[in-house]
Design a protein around this nucleic acid. Structure first.
Length: 277
DNA sequence: TGCCAGGCTTCAC
DNA sequence: GTGAAGCATGGC
């Protein structure tokens, strides 16, 4: 068990911002995270202090990286011009945001599934994949299901994986799994490649286009300048920026800005004031 | 019951 | 190269 003081860190903001699908609220503010085959519970204790249900070794070598705890987003927020009312409100609303450093394989599958699905439906599909094909594991007597390996998914037919509500995306997921399993898609090499080259490789996968590739770059490879433009971001750029968002102001950190925009655009606070649809 | 969802591929033109 | 059609299924 680790007790840690962390400033500018909000579990609810991170969990509800649409970047991950296996971080869930249990009770009284405690969130459960399943990632990299490990199980974690994080409980806010007040005064910027959090309890992590892990060893010191895992905290230092797994979760500090995962939650991007060494980063400081304050300098980025300071770049937002005061006269940009939307983005000023967005970075304020998204207090405690972090861009998680997730497993790129899990991110690839999750965001392939995400196309034309609601976030609750994505979470259901991802969880069903884990319970059906993940190898059960235990932490403190609790059973959980890690995300299955690419090799495991590669052995499945579209019919086998049909129980996971993937619809027409089933062939995209099995195809990506086979690319990883046979070595054609190597995330170790992608980490070393420049962002443009990595994006080109990702877009060569069947079922991966510009938006999903950007999500894999941002959430799986921590290329924080990747800027996924989904329907929400496009509507915001049209309605708040007359179709021209000033990306040049945030060069190098566009992915973080995008995450504040996405999280705020979907909030009831913004929807009440300026509904997008 | 009907509409919509963190898009993509395919096919005309 | 550009734009429209079609897509499976869950959640509200």
């Amino acid at each position: 068990m680790i007790i840690q003081k962390i400033q500018d860190f909000s579990l609810s903001t991170i969990a509800e911002s649409g970047q991950c699908f296996r971080m869930n609220l249990l009770e009284r503010g405690t969130y459960r995270v399943i990632a990299f085959g490990k199980y974690l519970e994080v409980t806010p204790l007040g005064n910027d202090t959090f309890q992590f249900s892990c060893t010191e070794d895992d905290f230092l070598h797994v979760w500090t990286d995962y939650f991007d705890l060494t980063a400081d987003y304050r300098a980025l927020k300071a770049l937002v011009p005061p006269d940009d009312a939307f983005l000023s409100a967005a970075v304020n609303y998204g207090w405690g945001m972090r861009i998680l450093r997730q497993d790129p394989w899990e991110v690839t599958v999750s965001f392939i599934i995400s196309q034309r699905k609601s976030i609750p439906a994505i979470k259901t599909a991802v969880e069903t994949i884990c319970t059906n094909f993940g190898t059960p594991a235990y932490a403190d007597g609790k059973q959980y299901y890690p995300f299955p390996s690419a090799e495991k998914i590669a052995d499945l037919s579209c019919s086998d994986i049909g129980c996971c509500s993937l619809g027409y995306r089933d062939k995209y997921v099995t195809g990506a799994a086979r690319s990883v399993a046979c070595g054609d898609l190597d995330f170790t090499k992608l980490r070393e490649a420049d962002t443009q080259a990595a994006g080109n490789i990702l877009r060569s996968l069947y079922g991966v286009g510009e938006k999903v590739a950007s999500c894999i770059l941002l959430f799986g490879l921590h290329r924080i300048n990747a800027f996924p433009e989904d329907t929400w971001i496009k509507r915001i750029i049209d309605s708040e920026y007359a179709g021209a968002f000033p990306k040049n102001l945030y060069e190098g950190h566009l992915g973080i800005i995008q995450q504040y925009m996405f999280y705020f655009a979907r909030s009831t606070e913004y929807q009440r004031a300026a509904p997008l649809n």
